[in-house]
């Protein structure tokens, strides 16, 4: 469904993403891991269109979207939840979700209400629907990130370290929600440092180091691979 071929991104002379080729299939759940500064968030930016690549080609359903801006990609069915929750603080939780459900004001508001309530129920936020988004605690803010993205009815959901900073219990409940999303047929690309959370959901794992992809395949096999262990644990003396 989403295909990146030989995609590179640079800040000046610093290469952040270095010739990455990656495909995400229909309904697939792909996890991406890698050390800090490996270029994982940039990879999501490139998929969403928040950053545009210096080289390479990105297609969605065979259609070239390499230079397409984020708001257009949202219309095609790509959505993103940010690492640090970024709620629209001047609105209620419901209104936050409504922004996504109306496609940024393009679709009829009343016709979008049921979608909003459905998503709020799915993410366990329905009880907070009336509250200002700025008053939510961390777990609910992360849920709101997810809810807002789901309200755009995505076919591909990009998750950026959504489990970070949560307690074990909170993390478990968030994993359940994400699993539900994945089971409903939405493809997921999930960047995460908390590997056990990732492994609970994804069916494919990809490892990025210094902007390049060094492993890709079955999660258990990838995690056992020597090269991956080397990056995470260091080389034995």
């Amino acid at each position: 469904m989403l295909d990146l071929s030989d995609v590179s991104f640079r800040y000046g002379t610093l290469t952040v993403t270095d010739g990455v080729s990656l495909s995400v299939g229909q309904g697939e759940a792909l996890g991406i891991i890698g050390p800090n500064g490996a270029g994982k968030s940039t990879l999501l930016d490139l998929m969403m269109g928040t950053k545009l690549p210096a080289e390479g080609r990105i297609t969605f359903d065979g259609r070239d979207i390499t230079r397409m801006p984020a708001q257009k990609r949202a219309g095609l069915g790509i959505a993103r939840a940010f690492q640090v929750p970024r709620p629209f603080h001047g609105m209620t939780v419901f209104e936050n979700v409504l922004v996504g459900a109306t496609g940024g004001g393009r679709r009829n508001e009343r016709a979008s209400y049921d979608l909003c309530f459905g998503v709020l129920e799915q993410t366990g936020l329905i009880g907070h629907a009336r509250e200002p988004a700025s008053t939510l605690r961390l777990l609910d803010r992360k849920r709101l990130e997810l809810a807002r993205a789901l309200a755009t009815k995505p076919r591909l959901l990009l998750l950026d370290e959504v489990a970070g900073g949560l307690t074990d219990m909170e993390c478990k409940s968030l994993i359940e929600t994400i699993r539900g999303v994945s089971a409903s047929g939405v493809a997921i690309v999930w960047i995460e440092h908390i590997v056990h959370a990732l492994l609970a959901v994804v069916n494919r794992l990809c490892v990025i180091d210094q902007g390049a992809q060094i492993a890709d395949g079955d999660p258990q096999e990838v995690i056992q691979a020597d090269k991956v262990r080397e990056i995470y644990m260091g080389t034995p003396a």
Binding site: R86, F88, G100, G105, A149, T152
Partner: peptide, 24 residues
């Protein structure tokens, strides 16, 4: 209207709004 809501969303966080389909 929902277009106004999109406008408010842009004020709060333009990048996040664009990611939800708001044509900033």
């Amino acid at each position: 209207s929902s277009r106004g809501l999109a406008l408010t969303a842009m004020r709060d966080d333009a990048e996040a709004a664009a990611g939800l389909g708001v044509d900033t």
